[in-house]
């Protein structure tokens, strides 16, 4: 009799210890937050600032790990195959979650994830060199039509948010076939090429734009930005939906099939962490635009973005 009790207890302990994801006890071991890029990049620092507040909110331990390569797809593909136990989450950007799976043959897709929460979202801006002759979008369209094949837009790589921004702009304006696309390896070389005059147009978030001497032409947001009230939105210059809004957003994803109670717990912890003083200060220091959505709202948002971005991918010819 005694031995049966003992055995049951031992088995129970084993199951709890190894299998783990019983919601009320969650978490019993550290949570791994995966950055799909190298240590020290923007995404990495955001998550490193986020992790301690998240750990406190969820009442456990959390650490950040990096897995880089293939524009973030290597990490996402690795996580997609993992057990959905809530101990592993990835921070995917709009491109990793919604663009890459549609342009590359990779082992994850729309239904591979349990979206947990969105953390940040910034609208993108199309810009040119501050001393360029182009003051408005109309100037650009007129110049491109007058000299087909002369003007070049840059990007930080095929399928990157910088590429999508320029494609949304010039495809929406109907002049993309009369321009050339020059991809670079990262935003740094592209910005340098802009300063040197090799490329004339580039698109990125407002934060990136403020680093150089650039002139914004159009912003891909639903309304004008308070920081640059004179810059028109894409809809105002005649760019039709779904190309008129484009955000660089990022959020936490767990593998598909996560227990709803655990999802709830993680999503709530995410909200607490975003609202914590420490993380708010980080966002203010780095000009990160926070945008929290809980698991219930993030899921439909993510699916809608996936569908909307397929139009952009077609326009980009990817």
């Amino acid at each position: 009799m005694k031995s049966i009790v003992k055995t049951t207890a031992a088995v129970a302990a084993l199951v709890l210890g190894a299998g783990g994801a019983v919601a009320q006890d969650f978490p019993v071991r550290p949570i791994n937050m995966i950055v799909p890029f190298n240590a020290g990049g923007g995404t990495d620092l955001l998550l490193r600032a986020f992790a301690p507040h998240f750990a406190e909110a969820v009442g456990g331990d959390a650490f950040v790990s990096n897995m880089a390569g293939g524009s973030g797809t290597v990490a996402a593909a690795a996580l997609a195959g993992q057990k959905p136990d809530g101990y592993q989450m990835g921070y995917w950007s709009v491109t990793v979650a919604t663009v890459q799976p549609q342009i590359k043959d990779i082992p994850y897709g729309l239904d591979s994830w349990t979206p947990i929460c969105s953390v940040a979202a910034s609208p993108t801006v199309l810009f040119t060199q501050a001393d360029s002759p182009f003051k408005t979008v109309d100037d650009v369209v007129a110049a491109v039509k007058a000299n087909p094949g002369k003007y070049i837009y840059g990007s930080s790589g095929p399928g990157a948010i910088t590429h999508l921004t320029t494609v949304a702009a010039f495809s929406g304006l109907g002049v993309i076939d009369q321009m050339k696309h020059l991809p670079f390896q990262g935003s740094g070389p592209a910005m340098q090429a802009m300063a040197a005059g090799t490329i004339q147009f580039f698109g990125d978030t407002e934060l990136l734009m403020t680093r150089g001497d650039f002139r914004p032409l159009v912003v891909f947001n639903n309304e004008r930005l308070s920081s640059m009230p004179d810059v028109p939105t894409a809809a105002e210059v005649g760019i039709a939906a779904p190309l008129n809004e484009l955000y660089l957003w990022g959020g936490l994803f767990a593998p598909a099939g996560l227990e709803p109670a655990v999802t709830q717990k993680l999503s709530a912890a995410c909200e607490m962490a975003i609202n914590s003083d420490g993380f708010q200060k980080f966002a203010a220091d780095t000009s990160t635009v926070l945008n929290y959505r809980n698991a219930a709202d993030f899921d439909p948002f993510y699916r809608a973005q996936y569908a909307a971005n397929s139009a952009l991918i077609d326009a980009a010819g990817l």
């Binding site: 190894a18 071991r29 550290p30 791994n32 650490f63 790990s65």
Partner: peptide, 12 residues
């Protein structure tokens, strides 16, 4: 350093 190397399935 909290920079984990892969761990075993037996003990985390």
């Amino acid at each position: 350093l909290k920079m984990p190397l892969p761990t075993s399935p037996f003990f985390w």
